[in-house]
Design a protein around this nucleic acid. Structure first.
Lengths: 119, 119
DNA sequence: TTGACGTATGCCCATATGGGCATATGATTG
DNA sequence: CAATCATATGCCCATATGGGCATACGTCAA
């Protein structure tokens, strides 16, 4: 097997920096492809391709408007990412600068992994 | 150019489901490679390879302990992901079920994109 | 109808992936 | 020292990527 397709899920789609830029650019409201091209300073075909990926994973939606295509952000599709990473929030929260280590050690012990444990 | 290396940043590293599992498994405290192998039910070499990627992007750290390698989660490395996705939290917040559309439309107008705008 | 505009596709390439497998390396025990 | 355990690497392959480029397609204006 090779690497999972970028269109597999939001995680993969958004791993690409340029696509994150597009998402950010759409945060202020819908934009046409050309507006995105200008905003990102990237060749139009490339923008279209990135938009296709984002579309396929549901991160953006399109609306046809004459010869334009207006892309809009569908934030909901990003929620799985948020939900996943949110669970680790404590790990960088300031209140846990030292406390977390202690707690982690405790949990480990409770968890009962054979390897004995100190730090 | 091809796809960015998985070791480019946390975004890419964590795009792989198996690596997300590893991260989750480490949330309860450090684990040896073998413990992870058992927990994930994946061949050891594969686990080691995934750990390497996570290590290279700083998501995990290792501590040598005899012939074992104890891996520990370094949550801080995940913060960039959290920070990025957090900005879109409003988009799926319940309070914005309809309100967001309205606001988005407004912002768009203020923003002054030429394309005229309705829904 | 013809031409210009706005987007999407197709084709090409170099690249690195995830997984399978065998094996190297290092530490420990007998 | 030899055997065993715990991990890491190496090699192989099929796959799809992001980008460059040309061009097809649909819409609108003369």
């Amino acid at each position: 097997m090779a690497r999972a397709a970028t269109t597999t899920d939001a995680f993969n789609a958004v791993a690409e920096p340029r696509r994150r830029e597009i998402v950010a650019a759409l945060a202020n409201g819908q934009r046409s492809v050309n507006e995105l091209v200008t905003a990102l300073g990237v060749p139009q075909p490339l923008v279209s391709k990135h938009l296709r990926v984002l579309r396929e994973v549901g991160v953006v939606t399109v609306r046809e408007d004459g010869r334009q295509r207006l892309y809009r952000l569908n934030g909901t599709a990003l929620k799985p990412i948020y939900d996943w990473v949110k669970d680790f929030e404590d790990l960088w929260s300031e209140r846990f600068t030292r406390m977390d280590v202690v707690l982690a050690e405790l949990k480990e012990t409770e968890y009962g992994d054979g390897s004995d444990d100190d730090d």
